[in-house]
Amino acid sequence: MSDRIVGLLTLVVALAFFASATQLEMPFFSDPLGPKLFPMLVSGVAMIAGTMMLLNPDAEPEWPVFSTFIKLFITSIILIIYAYTLKPFGFIFPTAVASAAISFQIKPNLTKSIIIGTCLSVILFLIFKFALGLGLFAFPKALIG
């Protein structure tokens, strides 16, 4: 079933890609097929591959149980929040929280996770800032002025 869904999805995306490629304007100079040709070829191959998966799916992969999916979802959310906070909040605080949270996903032990998060964050900051010379800020710019 998963293969069929992905096959169908591929087919739809490839069709959209193909349609979008045909809308590209043609240049005036002598490039006979211009920027259209390659996207059209690739989406053609993708459509064949998608159809094959739709018609001839493999055995169902072993999907994780629901609770694991929740874990993975939480991890993704943590990472997304981390991506947004890294700049405004400085390096140390978001990194400590994010690593502690990931560590907690792997081994649910709150105290240990917090210790791991804090240590990782400080050690990595020292390495990045002083050994590699990256322009990171430890704390929010507003705090350090």
């Binding site: 890294l86 690593s99 990931i102 560590s103 792997i106 240990k112 996770s113 990595l124």
Partner: peptide, 13 residues
Amino acid sequence: AILLPGVTMISFV
């Protein structure tokens, strides 16, 4: 529990 957060943070930075 130490390795994976470390790898993630190195990737991000």
